[in-house]
């Protein structure tokens, strides 16, 4: 029954490939050009994603599938991914850069911005802004994209794009560099003039120093607040981040704890009473026994592995 269904759905998605059901392995290769649906129907799969096909070149045989959906998240209130205008795209092949994606999707309407990420998730711009030379290298992998259109109508258009009209990445008007060409380009782009680099460093450090200063100012202000005013009153606040008088780091906490344990131990007497002495001896024998048992176990294991055959 399931097998039957599988075959049906293969016809539906016109996909080539390999299917696995429990117990029975089917290995079928289907002619990729077989297309049943000539109609201009969009293909929507459960989960609300629309499937778009994508080809590298117009004469390519194989095609990747993009899965698109309007961007809808409860928690996020970010301004640069407006819900009504943002298209969420899955499975963007590694050779598609922001510019290429922009180009691909502009057929549905004017694209305002494209954001490519390794994993779906909220956009967190952590830390200070840095030049591209200091950001970690981008991974060459399949990406997810957030495409913000200028008009919300473009979303609908993209979602209703027929499944059998593939998008084409590399066209004559917009060639995409891959392979040796791309690597040479990358290598060339990795150069930066030392003076320019120095500039970047200087400007970053300036920003850093400024932030440091602000921080110091803030702390100073807090400290001032803790001081007595003219009438001898001290204003007690919780502090912005819950400043405490106790040591501030985890390591320090641990240290104090250990110190106390050590102190306690020092006060103990060893092998002083007869019973203590007896206990130590008992422990020693127990230790030997335990070792013996351990060794016995190891031997048993090795024996099962036939590790004692000398030749």
């Amino acid at each position: 029954m399931r097998l039957h269904l599988l075959f049906k759905e293969r016809a539906f998605t016109a996909y080539l490939g390999f299917t696995c059901t429990s117990g029975v392995k089917v290995h079928t290769k289907m002619a990729p050009s077989k297309k049943k649906h000539a109609s201009n129907q969009p293909c929507v799969i459960p989960g609300g994603f629309t499937v778009l096909s994508l080809r590298f070149r117009s004469d390519s045989v194989a095609q990747h599938k993009l899965y698109v959906k309007e961007h809808k998240v409860r928690a996020e209130k970010s301004s640069h991914r407006p819900m009504d205008r943002t298209l969420f795209v899955l499975n963007i092949p590694p050779y598609c850069t922001e510019a290429v994606v922009n180009e691909l999707f502009s057929q549905f309407g004017c694209v305002q911005s494209v954001e490519l990420r390794d994993h779906p998730g909220s956009s967190q711009e952590s830390g200070p802004k840095m030049s591209k030379f200091f950001r970690p290298a981008k991974k060459q992998g399949f990406k997810v994209g957030y495409i913000v259109f200028q008009n919300s109508s473009s979303l609908a258009e993209a979602k209703s794009h027929p499944h059998d009209a593939p998008l084409v990445v590399c066209t004559e008007q917009h060639p995409v560099r891959t392979g040796a060409q791309k690597w040479i380009q990358q290598y060339t782009e990795s150069f930066i003039h030392p003076d320019k680099l120095q500039q970047i460093v200087d400007s970053f450090m300036e920003g850093y120093d400024k932030r440091k200063e602000e921080e110091a100012d803030r702390q100073k202000k807090e400290a001032e607040q803790l001081q007595e005013d003219e009438e001898g009153w001290v204003k007690v606040t919780r502090g912005s981040k819950g400043t405490k008088a106790r040591p501030h780091s985890e390591a320090a906490n641990k240290r104090t704890l250990q110190k106390e344990i050590r102190k306690k131990k020092r006060k103990e007497l060893m092998n002083f009473y007869t019973w203590q002495h007896r206990n130590t001896q008992k422990e020693h024998i127990a230790e030997l026994r335990k070792k013996f048992e351990e060794d016995k176990q190891r031997i048993a294991i090795l024996r099962t592995q036939r590790k004692f055959k000398p030749y």
């Binding site: 539906f12 996909y15 459960p46 092949p93 779906p120």
Partner: peptide, 12 residues
Amino acid sequence: TSQVSARNVAVT
């Protein structure tokens, strides 16, 4: 959404 890289979808 996190596991669709280079994959095809089949609907049952």
